Amino acid sequence: MNNYQKAIENSNIVSKTDINGIITFVNDEFVRLFEYSKEELLGKNHNIIRHPDTPKENFKALWDTILNKQVHKATVKNLSKSGKTVYLNTTIIPILDEFGNIFEFIAIRYDITNEVMLQKELKEKQKIIFLQSRMASLGQMLANIAHQWRQPLTELNLTLFNLKKAFESKNQKEFDNFYNSSKNLISGMSNTIEDFTNFFTPQKQKERFLLNLSINEALKILNRVIENEKINIKFNILKDLEVFGIKNELTQVLLNLINNSKDAFIQKNIEQKEINIKTYIKNNFIYLEYLDNAQGVNKELFDRIFEPYFTTKHQSSGTGLGLFICKIIIENSFEGQIMHENIENGLKFTLKFPKIV
């Protein structure tokens, strides 16, 4: 038993308290980590290392568990004497006497501060990349608005000229026709702004929504681009499939895929441009398949397409963030997967979502 005790104390951060949480023992690792002497710790309440940010309900859950003679496991945020934050994987074990009553608690801990800080650093980097991606998307959206508005602005200019002529000739019927036509054009342009505004509205609350609504939203935003580039889009969509996540972010994924296809069509001089979108259920998962005929990706680049800042486009055309963001969105916002494969004459993306129970 002495050998086991020494092994635990030498490889972990160990403390003991009485039933009221008063410290009765700390090992050398505990002293080193929290920067108190043993004399400063023994006889003190264990909350001497409590971090003020830790919610009170966490401690209630802890005491409810151990006073019920059960083992409590958690990742705990603590504070050293000098004010240093320490993250520990903590296991607290109630020790019972011969009558089954608790007479002390033993806490065995493992320091994971470096791992937690690394995760936080990665999350901060992800936030920066997301912001860069959002700015890139904004630039792309402004270009799409310009596409959407070019034709109606030309038509509106001509209609206003004809409206003036009808007014001068006092032809009431023609005047009314041109007036109504102008109103319809302006209304259409206003709807375009509404579509783009809705896309950029922050929406971080996850919700259930129909998969086809996100598909329709992406196509609505890019409809002028699709028409101008003469891209033929074919559908095989089940209209009642629901997924759980953030609708705007899935729309962003689809916008990225369509824009990537459009750029590849242009870059590779594809004459018959085709995109196929299909949704289905298989093995209790929901799938969205996206295929184009833009000749796929070179083998040497195939495994790198989800890397941040990697792009096959000219610097003026792409940031290399699109597919990286797509992967983050599908994995984080939807707890799903995004897979890719070269197919005959093109590239296929498969988006896999958990089925809502």
Rank of each mutant, 00 (worst) to 15 (best):
W63F: 02
C326K: 01
T192V: 06
E335M: 13
N269Q: 12
N248H: 02
D53E: 11
K123C: 08
T192D: 07
I129A: 04
F34P: 07
S11F: 10
I226L: 07
L323Q: 06
F265N: 01
N256H: 09
N232K: 10
L301G: 03
T17H: 15
E98G: 04
Q70P: 11
Q252E: 12
I145W: 13
L301A: 11
L142Q: 04
R224K: 13
F310K: 03
I277H: 08
D240S: 13
P52L: 14
G188S: 10
I108L: 12
Q151T: 01
V31L: 07
I270W: 10
L96H: 06
K355Q: 11
F349N: 01
L291Q: 12
I329C: 04
F200K: 10
E39C: 02
K352W: 09
V116I: 09
A74E: 13
K230F: 15
R304W: 11
I281W: 06
T197L: 06
S214F: 04
D28K: 15
K268I: 00
S182V: 01
D18Q: 11
H314W: 07
S133V: 04
Y309E: 05
H51G: 00
E249V: 02
D303Y: 03
T319K: 10
F175P: 14
N157T: 15
I343M: 06
G320D: 08
L163N: 12
P52F: 12
M141P: 00
F25E: 07
K204T: 11
K204L: 12
I275Q: 11
I266S: 11
N256R: 04
K173F: 07
N10K: 11
I193S: 15
A294D: 01
N177I: 09
K273I: 01
C326T: 06
Q5Y: 15
F285H: 12
Y4T: 08
S190H: 10
D176N: 03
M189N: 05
L138E: 02
R109E: 07
I145A: 14
I8E: 14
E98A: 03
L33V: 12
L323V: 00
P55M: 02
H314K: 13
K355I: 04
I22C: 07
S80D: 05
P202C: 00
L138D: 00
Q315A: 00
R50I: 05
A61K: 13
I226G: 06
I66P: 12
K120M: 05
S15Q: 04
I233N: 09
R134M: 11
I22V: 14
I49W: 07
F244C: 08
Q132W: 05
T65N: 05
T54V: 08
N2V: 01
K282H: 09
N162M: 15
L158R: 07
R150N: 14
I108N: 08
L238C: 09
I129L: 00
K355F: 04
T75F: 07
Q295D: 09
K327G: 01
Q140D: 10
F34I: 07
T154A: 15
P94E: 03
